[in-house]
Amino acid sequence: MTITEQHKTDIEQQVTTAFQGLVAASKTLNSAQYFEFIDQEKFVGLNADGSNWNSASELKALIDPSFSALEKVESLTFTNVKVSVIDENTAILVNEYQQTVILKDGSPFTAEGGGMQVWSKSSGKWLLVGIGASAKR
């Protein structure tokens, strides 16, 4: 099935909006809101350390303690964000990011890297079914 340019643009905007919701949840350290963007049944991923997440629960086991260890997100910016539409229900988003957080002990921590996200609309709304992460340092 061929997707019109207008429909492709609409999908790109929908996925970008979903991504922005995920980012907002990350900035506010709201794990429950963050996981509203994750497909609980189909999710898999690759962590920046080379280990797999074979389920949403494995990702949650990393995210929950990570969010709890932070006092606040000082800055989180995404550059070079690109959405590639595969079909009406699948899109891939790639990005580069820079983040500075303040740990509970008051010390800052900075990270940079990139990510690849596979978004699917098979459930009626755009959800993440796959993440690949990479760290610059």
Rank of each mutant, 00 (worst) to 15 (best):
A69D: 14
A69C: 06
A69Q: 11
A69Y: 15
L70Y: 05
L70N: 01
L70M: 03
L70G: 00
K72F: 11
K72G: 10
E74G: 02
E74H: 01
S75Y: 10
L76P: 03
T77N: 14
F78V: 06
T79I: 15
T79G: 13
N80Q: 13
N80D: 11
N80K: 14
V81Y: 02
V81D: 08
K82D: 14
V83E: 00
V83S: 00
S84V: 11
S84F: 15
S84E: 15
S84Q: 15
V85I: 04
I86P: 01
I86Q: 05
D87E: 10
E88W: 09
N89A: 01
T90H: 03
T90V: 11
A91H: 01
L93Y: 02
L93W: 03
V94P: 06
V94I: 10
V94L: 06
V94M: 12
N95F: 02
N95K: 11
N95I: 06
E96W: 14
E96Q: 15
E96F: 14
Y97D: 13
Y97F: 13
Q98P: 10
Q99K: 12
Q99T: 11
T100S: 13
I102P: 06
I102H: 04
L103E: 12
L103I: 09
L103D: 10
L103Y: 07
L103S: 07
L103H: 09
K104S: 05
K104P: 07
K104I: 12
K104A: 11
K104H: 11
D105W: 04
G106L: 08
G106F: 05
G106W: 05
G106C: 08
G106K: 08
P108C: 09
F109T: 07
F109N: 15
T110L: 12
T110A: 14
A111E: 08
A111N: 11
E112N: 15
E112L: 15
G113M: 07
G113K: 03
G113S: 11
G113L: 05
G113A: 07
G113N: 08
G114V: 01
G114W: 06
G114T: 05
G114L: 04
G114H: 09
M116E: 08
Q117I: 10
Q117R: 12
Q117S: 13
V118K: 00
W119L: 02
W119E: 00
S120W: 00
K121T: 01
K121L: 00
S122F: 13
S123F: 09
